[in-house]
């Protein structure tokens, strides 16, 4: 991997603020971001990325990459939870295996947003419809995780599938991203222009602040994994690497653009710690959130934004 790529990423202010959050926890600082502000920041980022993606889609339309990306998006979001489940079942209980599989089969909007920021720094173009891929990849893993749990458990107590579908398809992240995307597509340029200072000019600042919060959260969740052994750490790093490599390979083979292949690799390598925990608490309450949330938040997320972002770009370039 090019050292320059790694260095550029590490010196990016949002990434440095993530480290600051980790450092604050290590120092036992009382630095804390009030929860309503955290929630606002996450909602803002989804709103902004959705709207920007919609505006770009409205200008540029869909390219030939679109149908291939859709195929990859649906493929990854359906296949990853399945093979992850069978690997995890060897080491964890059935509920935990299903919940972790759903976590890693779904995606992280924040990792995606950080990756788009990385692409903007590198001046690499990508399709506005990648935001739609983000929304599409959020939900299938949730349904599959619950179905796998249902299939392999021994008791007859049914889980309401309509509730799962409802939760998977109407969770806040999906509604906000898709809704903002559609609004961006439908709104005329003159109407959207007034929003640009809010969605573009201050975006990076809010991203930096949010990553500070993510650093604090990740730091607090490290401790939860101290008794879990080596396997969660290995899984949380190896699976994303494998998925990203596969996505980069397939993207190169299908002739997708560098930016789109890169974002697909990032999505395939990411894990959910917002939408999936909500769904799992409702549908598989036996699963331990003290395992699947820290794996996504304290292992995979830091790995992806510190090492993964430049590494996946290198993979994409190697497989051209």
């Amino acid at each position: 991997m090019s050292i320059a790529l790694l260095q550029q990423n590490l010196l990016n202010p949002p990434i440095l603020f993530f480290f600051l959050g980790l450092l604050a926890i290590a120092m036992r600082s009382d630095l804390e971001i009030p929860q309503p502000i955290s929630k606002f920041l996450s909602l803002y980022l989804l709103f902004a990325i959705g709207l920007k993606g919609g505006v770009e889609l409205g200008h540029g339309g869909v390219s030939t990459d679109f149908s291939k990306l859709l195929f990859l998006a649906i493929g990854f979001s359906c296949i990853v939870p399945i093979y992850a489940f069978f690997i995890l079942k060897r080491k964890f209980s059935l509920p935990d295996a299903a919940a972790i599989a759903a976590t890693f089969g779904s995606v992280s909007a924040v990792t995606f947003i950080t990756a788009t920021s990385y692409l903007n720094e590198q001046d690499i173009a990508y399709g506005g419809y990648m935001v739609a891929m983000l929304a599409i990849m959020e939900s299938p893993a949730i349904i599959l995780g619950v179905m796998l749990f249902q299939k392999y458990r021994k008791t007859e107590q049914p889980i309401s599938t309509s509730k799962i579908w409802h939760e998977a398809l109407t969770n806040g992240s999906v509604v906000l991203v898709l809704g903002s995307l559609l609004i961006g597509i439908a709104s005329p340029d003159a109407a959207v222009e007034g929003l640009l200072p809010f969605t573009n000019d201050i975006f990076k600042g809010f991203l930096a602040f949010f990553l500070l919060d993510m650093g604090l959260l990740a730091g607090r969740r490290f401790r939860a994994l101290s008794k879990a052994g080596w396997f969660p750490w290995a899984f949380g790093i190896v699976l994303p690497l494998f998925n990203a490599t596969l996505a980069a390979l397939l993207g190169g083979w299908l002739g997708l653009s560098i930016g789109n292949t890169y974002l697909m690799a990032v999505l395939a390598a990411s894990a959910s710690y917002i939408a999936v925990p909500a769904a799992m608490r409702m549908s598989i309450p036996e699963a331990n959130p003290g395992l699947y949330v820290p794996m996504a938040l304290a292992i995979t997320f830091p790995f992806n934004i510190v090492v993964g972002l430049p590494l996946y770009m290198q993979l994409v370039l190697w497989f051209r």
Binding site: K39, R221, A224, Y273, P277, A278, M280, R281, N288
Partner: peptide
């Protein structure tokens, strides 16, 4: 017995 419930994070899982 099911772990800490510190209300931390971006979801209500805890």
């Amino acid at each position: 017995e099911r772990g800490s419930r510190d209300a931390d994070g971006l979801t209500e899982a805890f």
